[in-house]
């Protein structure tokens, strides 16, 4: 059982920068196991910066960042990239890509065993790609590649999972399937951070919301934070249209 009393991720007074340019400040967040946090902000607001910071790709210049025992730099974080610039000719099959999610669990001298092969098979089945498991990864369609990367993240059985715009370009069946996957992961105690432009989606599967625009604008339970005042502050440069159910930020893909 995962320890559910310690946060999967906690950042206190965090600031991140690229070289000398400060990109994001005042980050104070907690992601508990089994909780999903929506990360929302306009383009260039620091969403990717925060994800990179959590992944350890850019350093925290201020504040502290702590991980739960089942997540963090030593055990690995599940990560679903937005658009991956992979070499389409790279000679690996989908199955081999998903097995990469298991690498950290393998010892230096141990080969993948039954449990690893089973986890890979299950992850591929979960994203509905069993029939192309042995195909070269680069030969798959964009949507299939994205689901393949999701399978890799699932196979790693992460304590913390980062999803960068996972709903972009998904059709309705795939969108529903991904929502269901997120619900199952939450039930299994995984802490999740998902960046999205889709506020409906944030309401649907997320528990907390973090608004950023160069700094933290607001963080808290979604019902407290998803307010018109916060939206206006975050998207001050954008025209926000609100109808009965959806809020669409022009210039981005809405649903």
């Amino acid at each position: 059982m995962r320890n559910i009393s310690t946060p999967a991720l906690a950042i206190r007074g965090g600031a991140l920068s690229y070289g000398t340019t400060t990109a994001l400040t005042d980050i104070d967040i907690t992601v508990m196991p089994g909780e999903a946090m929506a990360l929302i902000g306009p383009n260039g607001s620091g969403k990717s910066t925060l994800l990179k910071g959590v992944l350890g790709l850019i350093p925290l210049v201020e504040g502290t960042m702590t991980f739960g025992e089942s997540a963090g730099a030593d055990t690995g974080i599940g990560y679903l990239p937005q658009t991956e610039h992979i070499d389409p000719e790279f000679p690996v099959s989908l199955k081999q890509v998903v097995m990469m999610g298991r690498y950290r669990k393998l010892g230096l001298f141990t080969f993948p065993g039954k449990a690893d092969r089973h986890a890979v098979k299950k992850a591929i089945a979960d994203v509905g790609l069993t029939n192309v498991a042995n195909k070269r990864f680069g030969s798959l369609s964009g949507g299939q590649q994205q689901r393949g990367f999701l399978a890799r993240a699932l196979a790693s059985e992460p304590g913390l999972l980062l999803l960068d715009e996972p709903f972009n370009g998904l059709d309705q069946p795939n969108r529903d399937a991904l929502l269901q996957t997120i619900r199952e992961l939450k039930a299994a105690g995984v802490g999740i951070i998902v960046t999205t432009h889709d506020l409906d989606l944030a309401r649907e599967v997320c528990d907390t919301v973090l608004f950023v625009n160069g700094r933290q604008i607001a963080f808290g339970p979604k019902d407290d934070v998803l307010t018109l005042a916060n939206l206006q502050e975050v998207f001050s440069d954008f025209q926000v249209e609100i109808d009965e159910h959806t809020v669409v930020v022009p210039g981005h893909e809405g649903h």
Binding site: L55, L57, Y79, V97, Y103, R104
Partner: peptide
Amino acid sequence: FRAFDSVASAAAG
């Protein structure tokens, strides 16, 4: 892992 996908390999630790 690094050759195929440098960011995800870093994410994996």
